[in-house]
Design a protein around this nucleic acid. Structure first.
Lengths: 130, 130, 130, 130
DNA sequence: GTGGTCTAGACCACG
DNA sequence: GTGGTCTAGACCACA
């Protein structure tokens, strides 16, 4: 698994972990049913504390991305994936607002913004194009 | 000025202030050259700490949104607006990545995502339709 | 015997086993004197660890639900059933307290709570209606 | 605030804290809008670690019982209380099942069980009867 | 002052 | 072996 953590970043390490793993799932590099490394081993790999990894795993569990059981450790959820319900859509809108307000002030047009989003989107789905 | 602050929110109050003011500028409710309320009066209006307002103003200045003069107080920058340079574009991309990764996992298509962005964009530019 | 084990559940597997077997006795699906499957076969059936099944059986024995003989294996107690003594009543009350406190906070009335309990009770005693 | 914690108990300390606080809310000893002690002071009072208190507070927040903001610390939610929705009802039913199965095996009748529940209920609402 | 984050190290329950 | 719990102590962001 490729996770690069920036210890100097403003964003908390556990948030970086969550983002990285979600992105791994989006890229299909992490398949449903697949197990994630144990808190201890991932912590050792990244040179961080196991509690930090644990917190990331707990958040992922809470959002429905993984399940944690005593046998296999942490496993990517197979079914009942997080849904794009109204709560999600309104949250996303709130997250987009400041980004878009900033973009407008900088003279970025609707089209340019859409273009950039598309680029990120497609970079995230390389296998879909094969 | 309409600024609604949510004390329960995860986002720091000063960040909410920055977002609110930038959005005001994007919506053209705040015009270049226009003055913002003094630190003291805005803090009193919102019932928050002086330091918090001050921190927001300093950040806005640092990003080039406002200028702070001893005489006129805080004034929205007339020229030399923040530019959409490469640094900005790569920062925006980094901010979009986790949002888009999450969206992909929830089965949101590129088109749906674009649609939602557009909606936010247009809601932010009501005067463009005149 | 119908025992469905949820590996994702918070409750330990051995606890789920105990609950399932006690419920089987309550429903009279398991009769006094009846033998339970051997540790080995039940573990194999459910795809779980031998130790887990063993721990559940030991707990059931400790609470007086079963007797364990070398010859007949694990057998449901015929007489000397666990009694509803004071120790039990106070333990039950302690278990009910957090449930009821939560219910009160959610606006559940005494009557609604009683109704729900009754429903579970009756669902557990289908043969009583014959 | 009266919270008695049993360090020897099987139930985790943070769970005992959650139960105690929810019960305090149910008993109206803790009023909506009221602030809870800071993690540090409560931890000091109880002679436990601040992280343990923090975990309890986080859980209460997650369940909607309290809100955490930077100004006043932890405050009991005033509106939008946890609701008695279907998810709650089915969860409660699952929690009641093992208790009731056990009760049935011990010869406790439906009426006796209801009586005990009522007793706990009424003990929790002393002021309602005044 | 508050809570948020991170570290380090320990013990236990579970399987 | 796994995660769950608890402790102790540190630094920082926020207000």
């Amino acid at each position: 698994m490729l996770l690069d953590i920036d210890l100097q970043s403003e964003t908390p390490i556990y948030t970086q972990l969550v983002h990285g793993i979600v992105e791994g799932i989006a890229r299909k590099q992490l398949q449903p049913g697949e197990g994630l490394p144990s808190v201890r081993s991932l912590a050792a790999d990244l040179g961080i504390n196991l509690h930090t990894v644990n917190k990331a795993y707990q958040l992922l569990k809470q959002e429905g991305y993984v399940q944690i059981n005593r046998k296999q450790g942490v496993v990517i959820t197979m079914d009942a994936y997080p849904a794009a319900d109204d709560a999600y859509r309104s949250r996303l809108r709130e997250q987009l607002r400041p980004l878009i307000a900033d973009a407008i002030c900088r003279g970025v047009t609707k089209e340019q913004f859409a273009e950039m989003s598309q680029a990120v989107f497609e970079e995230m789905l390389p296998k879909e194009e094969k």
